[in-house]
Design a protein around this nucleic acid. Sequence first.
DNA 1: GAAAATACCTGAATCGATTCAGGTTGATTT
DNA 2: AAATCAACCTGAATCGATTCAGGTATTTTC
Lengths: 341, 341
Amino acid sequence: MKGGTPVPASIRDVAQRAGVSVGTVSNVLNRPDEVSSDSVERVNRAIEELGYVRNDAARKLRGGVSSTVGFVVLDGQNPFYTDVVRGAEDEGTRHNIAILYGNTDEDHARERVYLDLFEEQQVRGVLIAPYGDITARLQRLRARGIAAVLVDRFSGDGRFSSVSVDSVRGGRMAVEHLLDTGRRRIAFVGGPFDIRQVNDRLAGARVAAENASPPLEIEVIATGAMTVEEGAAAGTRILARPRRDWPDALFAANDLLALGLLQSLIVDGRMLVPNEIAIIGFDDIPFAAAAAVPLSSMRQPSRMIGRTALRILLEEAADPTSIARQTVFQPELIVRRSTSG
Amino acid sequence: MKGGTPVPASIRDVAQRAGVSVGTVSNVLNRPDEVSSDSVERVNRAIEELGYVRNDAARKLRGGVSSTVGFVVLDGQNPFYTDVVRGAEDEGTRHNIAILYGNTDEDHARERVYLDLFEEQQVRGVLIAPYGDITARLQRLRARGIAAVLVDRFSGDGRFSSVSVDSVRGGRMAVEHLLDTGRRRIAFVGGPFDIRQVNDRLAGARVAAENASPPLEIEVIATGAMTVEEGAAAGTRILARPRRDWPDALFAANDLLALGLLQSLIVDGRMLVPNEIAIIGFDDIPFAAAAAVPLSSMRQPSRMIGRTALRILLEEAADPTSIARQTVFQPELIVRRSTSG
DNA sequence: GAAAATACCTGAATCGATTCAGGTTGATTT
DNA sequence: AAATCAACCTGAATCGATTCAGGTATTTTC
C-alpha cells in the first residue's frame, strides 16, 4: 500500500466518479432529500470508494458555519471543570460539535490568547468560565457573529447568557451548616478575589455570619490560587499560629483548597478533623468523598451546567437576536464526616 | 456603539486602508522582513483600526497548515489525562497551537467520531491515547498528511511515534514492592483488557510473581472501566467472599480504581488498610496523596508525557519523512501508607 | 553610463464547499 | 397539444488568505 493517495479527494473528484455535478454532491451531503435516491446512492458509493472527507476549512470559508465551539476553562485540572466540559461535550456530540479547549490557569494573558484563537477559527460560539472582566472582549466576538455564554459565573449586567450556580446562596448555606453544628470561629479560605465566585461565596458566608446570634465575623485567609497546594500552604499558615487563635471551622472556596487544608492538618496531627476543626468545601468533586476524612461540600450540578451552557450557546448562535438569559442552579449541601463529628 | 461593524474586515479592506496590495498585507503578516518598514507600519495601523483578524479557514484552505492539534483522550475525568493534556497545552501555547479536545470514554465509536472530525478539520496532527487498535485509522490520517503520536501507549509495530511509560516495568515494580512488604495473596484489579496498559501492567505483575520464591499466581479481578465507581464495585465483590478468600494485597490498574477500592473497604470496615490488605495504584494522581489512607502508586511523569508528545508531533508534522520513535519514560514507585503499615 | 543586481510591490490564480440562477426532463392540467 | 408544474440537475460565482510570475524603482558594479 505504499504511495497511496497522497492527495485527498475533493468534492470534484467525487462528482466525477459518481457522474454528477459538484452541486449535486454538495446537495447529497447537505440536503439529501432534494436529490434522487439514485444519485444519493451513486454519490455515497463514490465517497466511500475515494475515502472522501469534507474539508471543513472550505465549508467554513464559504458558508461561515463552524462545527466547533471554544471552551475557555479557569482551571483544567479541577475535576469540577472537567466535569463541566464533559457535560458540554456530551451535548456537543449530539449536535456534531467538537470542543476546542483552552485552559487559562487563572491567567489573563492566556484568556486573551485563547479568545483570539477562537476568533481566528471562527468558532460557532464560546463557552467561558472567565477569570476577570471580559465583557468588552465578548462584545467584540459577538460583533463578529460569535456567540458567548458564561459558565459558572452569573452575568452581572445581563448582556450575555450565563449558566451558573448561586454562589452567594451556596456560601450562606455552607456557613449556616457550620453554625448549626456549633461552630463559631469560622474562617473563609480562598482567593484570588478577582475570581468572582470567590467573592460571592464569601459574601454569602458573611450574610450567614451576620444573621447568627450573636452575629460574628468571618476571618478571611487569602490564597493565591484555588489549588490543593495553596490549600495546604494555607493550612500550614494556620497551624503556625498560637493555639488559641485557631479557628474551629474552615469554609474553603473550592474542594481543591479544602483537600489541601485537610491534608496539611492531618499530617500535622494537632488539630483533629472534624472534632476540633470542621472543613467544608465547594463543588463536591468526586474525590471529596474519598478524602482522608470525607469532605462535606456544596454540590454543583457540574455536567448539567456544561450541557445547559452548550445548548443555550447553540440556540443563540442559531438566532443572534435572542435575548440573554441567566440560568441559575441551586447548590446542594452534602454533609460528610469533615463537618459532623 | 450600536450597529458597529457587522462584517468583519478582510485582508482586502486592510490593503485598501493601508494603500497597498493584498499581497503586501499578506507579506506583512507572514514575512515582515521582506517588506519595507514603512509598509509594515501602515499595514499594522490599518489592522489595528479595522480590528482585523485573520480568517483561519481561508488560510487553511489555501496553505493547508492548521494551528490546531487534536487530542483524543481515553478518560477526560481522570486527573492523569488532564495532566497530560495540560502538558501538551503548555507546549502548544509556546508554538501558538491550540488543542482540539475529544474524550472517548473508552468507547470505540467516539474514538472514530473524533478522528473523523479531526480529519475534516485538517488539524496539524493528532495526539491519541487509544482505546483499541487504531493503526489502520492513523495510517489513513497520515496518508492525508496528518501526523499522529500515541500517548501513554507504546506503539508495538513501531509505525507511529509514541510517548509512554514502561507499563510492564511499572507492573513489576508495583508487585515487587508488595512482595517486599510481605504480601503473598495478590490480586490485580483492572479492565477492560482491550486497554493495552491494563494488559501490560498485569503482564509486569505476573513477571514479578513468577520471580518470587516460591512463585505465586496473581488473581485477576476484572472491571468494566477504570473509574472510581468500578473500583468500589470490585471492592464490594471482594468483600462478599468468605473471609479466607480475601487477598492481602491489591494492585489496581490505575489510581481511580484504587481509590474506589479503598473507599469501599473503609466503608465496610472489616478489612483494614494497610494492615490486613495493601493497595497500590498507578499514575500517582494528585488525589492519591489526599486519600483516606494515602495511596501508594506508580508515578508517571504526566505533564512531561504531554509536552514531549506534542513536541514530537510538531516535529513530525514539519518533516513527514522523519522516522517514528518510541519515547519511554520510567515509572517511579511512590510509597505511602496504603502499602506500609 | 549601461548593465546587473537589489528591494519592494502588484494582482491574478488558487484552494474546496456551497449556493443559486438557470437548465432539462417528464408528468399533469386544461 | 400547449401550458404549467414538479423534480432534479448543472456549473459559474463566491468566500479570504496565500503565492508567485511579472512588474518598477533604486542602487551597485565595472
